[in-house]
Design a protein around this nucleic acid. Sequence first.
DNA 1: TTTAATATATCGTACATCCGATATGTTGGG
DNA 2: CCCAACATATCGGATGTACGATATATTAAA
Lengths: 100, 100
Amino acid sequence: MRGDCCDMRGMLSFLVLFLLSKKPMNGSEIAREIERRKGAKPSPGTIYPALKGLREMGFVKEKKSGKTVTYSLTSKGKDALRLAKQRFCATFTDVLGNGK
Amino acid sequence: MRGDCCDMRGMLSFLVLFLLSKKPMNGSEIAREIERRKGAKPSPGTIYPALKGLREMGFVKEKKSGKTVTYSLTSKGKDALRLAKQRFCATFTDVLGNGK
DNA sequence: TTTAATATATCGTACATCCGATATGTTGGG
DNA sequence: CCCAACATATCGGATGTACGATATATTAAA
């Protein structure tokens, strides 16, 4: 999401933003959901820096409760996701489209 | 494509591999096709290192004619693309799926 | 309480992506 | 022939993604 305009960098942040738009989650839950989709679980050293970046850009907000921190989108984050989704679809439509 | 197993790195190489599977192209044509999809054209400093990497991994072969080099997939590249496409779809299906 | 498990977080290192600048070779127009 | 346009290619520097190792805090189990 750093790459707000044109690059391939930021796909993890994009995916995290998308997942949080469906349901607020904490870091471990996000990692497990990515594991479910890709078959490999991102390590803490991957997922927490990504969340930190999204927070610093004002795209996600946090709610701490005990040992867990639940992340959810800000309205700014929702706007960013909408734009990013449009770019993503324009770039990859037929990759998903043609089946195998 | 480096990230043959689990990471978000390699999305450009993945896209290039996909584009070449539809039609053999030279570097400039690939850059223009990416521009058409994303609205931003990758510079030479982006696209040629990516092609070099794909060549070094044995995923694309070259055919030089005058000033242009036409790239196309090897059978190894086709296999790699097939796998990468499966991972990509599993990860991003509903991102493209839900319309907006 | 001690122990184990979980969630969070940072560090160092490596690599992919990205740009702008720069350079070389080919081609076509003047 | 000379020059502009194009295709190719590399370099340096910045940022994102990734892992393993490490550290701390909270919670649950023994």
